[in-house]
Every structure is written in C-alpha cells, then in structure tokens.
Nucleic acid binder design. Structure first.
Length: 264
DNA sequence: AATATTGTTCAGCA
DNA sequence: GTGCTGAACAATAT
C-alpha cells in the first residue's frame, strides 16, 4: 500500500543509502516492470552515473542522476526498496538490482508487479502526461485551492480524495484515516460538506500525512487514536468506542466508524 | 477452491 | 472532451 507517506520514506531511504556512488551494474530480472523503455536503454542511461538527489510527486519516486536524467519508480501495492551488500539475500520478489561502486546494491522489489520503473529527463512533463494533480503535501496549495478542487465534485468524498488527478498521493488506507480523523463518512457527497468541515478535512489531511511520514508509515507506530491500527471489522473505534464498519466505497474496502463519522 | 487485497488504466456511459 | 464507475491486471494469503 505505498501511498504518499510510504513513498516519502522510500525517498529518505534512497537519500541515506544510495547517493553519489557510481552505478556499475544494472540487472533487470523482469523487463515487464519497465515502462516506455527497453532494458538495454534503461541500463545504458544508468550505468556509470550516480544518484545525486531524490524527489517525490504523489506516489512516484524520482531518483535524480548526475546528468539530470531521473530513474522513476512507482510501487503499486506491494513495492519497496532494499539496500544490501549481498544481492543474493534480496527478497524473493526483487525485480531490478542496481549495483554501486562500494559493493552495495539497491533492489526494487515488487511482489505483485503492479508498479513500474522508467527513465525520464523532465519531471514536470512526466507529471503532466500522467495527469497528476499537485502533490497532497505541496505547501503552495491552500484551503481556497482545496475547496475549489473538491467541493464541486460528484461521487463520494472518498473517491475524490483518492483521485490522483485532483491531488496526488492519497490512496485507500490514508483516505480512510483522513476521513476518520476529520469525522466525515466516506460516502459523503463533497457538494454537501459545509465550509467548516471542508476546512477541517483540509487541515486533517495535512496533519495525518505529516504524522504518518514521521512515524515511518508503520501502522504499529501510529498514535493510539489512529484507525490504521484498527483496520478490521468488529474492532472498536479508538475515539468513541463505536463499531468499525467495513463497506465497499468507490470500489475499495473502506473502514470507518459509523458513530462519529457524519454523512453529509 | 473461491475470495480479498492493493493502485492504475481503460472501457463504457451520461 | 469531461467526469465518474467498475472491471481487469498480478500474485499471494486465507
């Protein structure tokens, strides 16, 4: 479930492990993970270069190379990064291994193969072509922008929050957490949510993402009052003691508290 | 053995 | 074209 907070932690992991080391080997075990680039070209554009920075937009991670190309990674539902000395000890589902001059290796792991990897030379153009809205943590997005983006939407507030072309980075798990903390029912219609509640939703979105990044996006480390710890039917709401309900909302299983999450 | 899971893409529809 | 819904995709656990 790598969403914004998870990918932000991958970015920090990348920065703390893989900067400024010459890439001397690129092994693509599954070329099906590559999008819009053949394995040969992919290798050529990485070999003998080094990563110099890491950026993120929504759920996409960009590892900047010293010639200003970018390695792009999306993690699907089950992807993660792994930095090890011995590539033979990588997880079973490692799909691409990048070997550095210090003898260490960075593995792109993707069990269910729903992620993708490519190389680009312009992040803005990539984001535009992918149809992504601004990053959900973009500090230049204020409440007025948020209200404008959301309040005229049809469908449910949950599907709007998960819509990457409006704001990018929020998926199933964190949309549930944001609505849980803001006291908004996932089936609420954005058009019916009053100004005060929209403001609460906006502030809560920022706070939840920030807190989850700080807690390494690990459910075990989340605060006591976070839903993420109690995703499961029949559990009690850590805020009000109500029952946690599971329903399919906009095609995803959604967990929420029917007692304190108001339906607008 | 059938079902649920997760994010993105794409077909279909208004 | 726009906005939305829901199926499909891969691989696994239950």
């Amino acid at each position: 479930m790598p969403e914004l907070p998870d990918v932000e932690n991958f970015r920090r992991y990348l920065l703390s492990t893989s900067m400024r080391k010459r890439i001397e080997d690129v092994e693509v075990m599954d070329s099906g993970m590559l999008k819009n680039v053949k394995a040969g070209e992919f290798r050529d554009r990485l070999l003998n270069h080094a990563f110099v920075a890491g950026r993120r937009h929504g759920k996409y991670l960009f590892a900047e190379l010293d010639d200003h190309d970018y390695l792009v990674m999306h993690f699907g539902m089950t992807g993660f990064l792994e930095y090890r000395e011995d590539p033979g000890r990588m997880d079973d589902h490692v799909r691409i291994i990048i070997g550095f001059s210090n003898g260490y290796h960075l593995g792109y792991n993707c069990q269910r193969k729903l992620g993708m990897v490519t190389v680009i030379d312009d992040i803005g153009r990539f984001v535009g072509r992918a149809g992504l809205g601004p990053d959900a943590m973009d500090s230049s997005i204020g409440f007025d922008d948020f209200r404008e983006m959301f309040s005229s939407r049809n469908g449910t507030i949950k599907s709007a929050l998960m819509n990457q072309s409006i704001l990018s980075g929020i998926g199933n798990v964190y949309s549930d957490e944001i609505m849980f903390q803001a006291g908004v029912h996932p089936r609420s219609s954005p058009k019916n949510i009053d100004e005060k509640t929209m403001r609460k939703l906006f502030n809560t979105m920022r706070r939840v993402l920030r807190v989850c990044i700080r807690n390494k996006a690990d459910p075990e480390n989340m605060p006591r009052t976070y839903l993420t710890k109690y995703r499961g039917e029949g559990n009690n709401c850590p805020k009000c003691g109500g029952g946690i309900t599971k329903e399919t909302v906009s095609g995803r299983s959604s967990y929420f508290c029917g007692k304190h999450q108001h339906r607008f």
